[in-house]
Simulated scan of single mutants.
Amino acid sequence: MPSYRTAPRSRPGPRRRSLLAGAAGVASAALLAGCSDSADSDADGRPSAARRLRAAAAKDSRELLRRYDAVLAAHPSLDGRLGPLRGEVKRHVEAFEKSTGGNTPSPTAPASPSGAPPKAPTPRVSTDPKTAVRDLAEAERELADRRGKALLDAPAEEGRLLASVAAAGAAHAYLLTEKEDDK
């Protein structure tokens, strides 16, 4: 018999395979919980922060779309220039509404007595087409900046969508001011 102690054949406690299987089970449970419908609501039944973020982004995009419509109504000659950008903003509205299930109530506006949400006032538009376009570019830039800041706290899926739409808004602002700079 050797004069030194030999290690026992099996160590006490859980084995490596058991630990890995347990960790995989915990990770799977966490992923499944993250994919459930309860992710759209907090524990108290209110919409989750991600859902509120999407609803606010949809509202902002709808307001920007109304600005485009107001400028185009006041200056129909700008349709060739603004039409494609307006179409993109409309797609942004649809993307945010799709990600909220189409249910994007205004978080601050109370419902009218008839139960329908109140209609937003038409944005004021300058009588000068260049000023109207410049104001539209400023609105695009401001919204892109706000969305860029919102990315800091946004969950992954909403963050990707916000980043994409913020980049598009910054590009719109550039395109709206580029033609003015060339003249």
Rank of each mutant, 00 (worst) to 15 (best):
142 E>T: 15
70 A>F: 07
178 E>N: 09
37 D>K: 11
61 S>P: 02
39 A>K: 12
66 R>L: 13
42 D>N: 12
25 G>L: 11
85 L>W: 02
58 A>T: 06
122 T>V: 15
169 G>C: 02
96 F>H: 10
27 A>V: 11
95 A>H: 01
169 G>T: 01
162 L>M: 01
85 L>A: 08
69 D>T: 12
137 A>I: 03
159 G>N: 05
120 A>Q: 10
50 A>C: 08
20 L>K: 06
42 D>T: 15
177 T>K: 11
3 S>R: 15
40 D>R: 14
97 E>L: 10
138 E>T: 14
150 A>V: 03
33 A>S: 10
101 G>C: 05
48 S>V: 01
122 T>K: 15
102 G>V: 04
91 R>S: 13
110 P>A: 10
94 E>Q: 11
9 R>Q: 11
110 P>K: 08
109 A>S: 04
109 A>W: 04
175 L>T: 08
18 S>E: 15
154 A>P: 06
12 P>C: 05
127 T>S: 15
155 P>G: 07
77 S>W: 00
25 G>I: 04
9 R>W: 08
58 A>V: 06
16 R>A: 13
181 D>L: 11
77 S>L: 05
80 G>T: 09
96 F>P: 02
143 L>H: 01
59 K>M: 06
25 G>A: 14
3 S>V: 11
91 R>P: 01
62 R>I: 05
73 A>V: 04
63 E>T: 07
108 T>W: 14
10 S>P: 00
137 A>R: 05
15 R>Q: 13
144 A>Y: 01
53 L>I: 07
29 A>G: 06
74 A>C: 09
39 A>V: 15
141 R>K: 13
102 G>Q: 03
177 T>D: 13
68 Y>D: 09
166 A>S: 12
14 P>S: 12
90 K>N: 14
43 A>H: 09
162 L>Y: 01
122 T>N: 06
74 A>F: 02
87 G>A: 10
39 A>P: 00
116 A>T: 08
123 P>E: 03
38 S>C: 06
133 V>H: 07
79 D>F: 03
136 L>I: 03
49 A>P: 00
74 A>S: 12
97 E>Q: 13
87 G>M: 07
14 P>R: 14
74 A>D: 08
64 L>F: 10
61 S>T: 06
80 G>I: 01
70 A>P: 08
123 P>W: 04
92 H>S: 13
55 A>E: 12
147 R>H: 10
154 A>N: 05
41 S>F: 15
127 T>F: 10
75 H>E: 00
17 R>E: 10
